[in-house]
Nucleic acid binder design. Structure first.
Lengths: 158, 158
DNA sequence: CTTTATGCAAAGGGTTTGCAACAAA
DNA sequence: TTTGTTGCAAACCCTTTGCATAAAG
């Protein structure tokens, strides 16, 4: 169930930008923020259709950028073929992701040390230190040592 | 001009893997390592064709993974529509990238502090600390403060 | 000769877009 | 009403792939 505060925030954003609050968009908002899992556009479509079956893929793709603009949803490029969306930035505004390149395992983490260091680096190189996003790619230990891992097996061998 | 050492290394790799050293592959190797700029598959094709006009796009796409396997070339996912390739890992094995999300500016940097911290984090989260790759997204200061920047203007407004 | 590589063109797959019908404000 | 929105299906674009031909070893 999506928090009312989130829904209000988004509807307010839409109102002040001349965007209409349609049934489809409401269904997509509900689907987008009633989970704390990452999801793809396709998965969001499926979930939104459980709320309102009339939602089309095109509308999902057209609505996602709106949600991202509110700052409550973030688009994640996890190095896969598709984009992923992360609804957890409202509760954890500074989290980062570490990704197993082989098995798709993703772990969210916060680290003040890293944040400080990356801000310094960004500033020194002529970048604006705010709004820095970082992703770490690695191999998960289980996969590296045993040659397999739960998640890799579950998602079908690549 | 590609360093002979690099070319030898790659040809050695191919030999020991039963891969044939064709004229096209040699042209692609030459094109791939005679620059220190990042490039896309399409740009590599163009440069390879200056060496041997018979090189086809398919062969470029089929050869790139071989070069990546040698460890001398790295595939970079910079969050754009295409993959980029970085031939500078032979000279700077530990460098990272910081990317301006808006204007495509990319700066390479090395930072021991960051490397150590990210290794610790990776280890704590159950990832293998070696072979960690990291990318930072940010907005370049010039673009943020002036609303435009040289590179953005040069590459056509998005 | 045997086996791998090549070029071509078509296929793939996530995402975007043109358009006529619709519906919020 | 007016103007933004929707669903559909086609278009996009980078990348991959099937196939008959070519050439490395």
């Amino acid at each position: 169930m999506t928090e009312p505060a989130i829904k209000e925030k988004i509807i307010g954003f839409m109102a002040s930008n001349g965007l209409r609050v349609t049934a489809q968009r409401q269904a997509i908002i509900e689907a987008a923020f009633s989970t704390d899992e990452h999801y793809t556009a396709e998965e969001l479509l499926e979930r939104a259709r459980q709320v309102d079956p009339s939602v089309s893929r095109a509308t999902v793709y057209r609505t996602l950028p709106v949600l991202v603009q509110t700052g409550l949803l973030r688009e994640l490029d996890l190095g896969k073929d598709q984009m992923y969306y992360d609804p957890n930035y409202a509760s954890h505004p500074n989290h980062n992701h570490i990704i197993c390149v082989d098995c798709d395992k993703i772990v969210e983490f916060e680290d003040y040390c890293l944040d400080v260091r990356e801000s310094v680096i960004a500033k020194n190189l002529g970048f604006r230190p705010g709004a820095v996003r970082l992703r770490i790619e690695a191999t998960c230990e289980q996969l590296a040592s045993t040659g397999t891992c739960a998640r890799r097996d579950a998602s079908g061998v690549k």
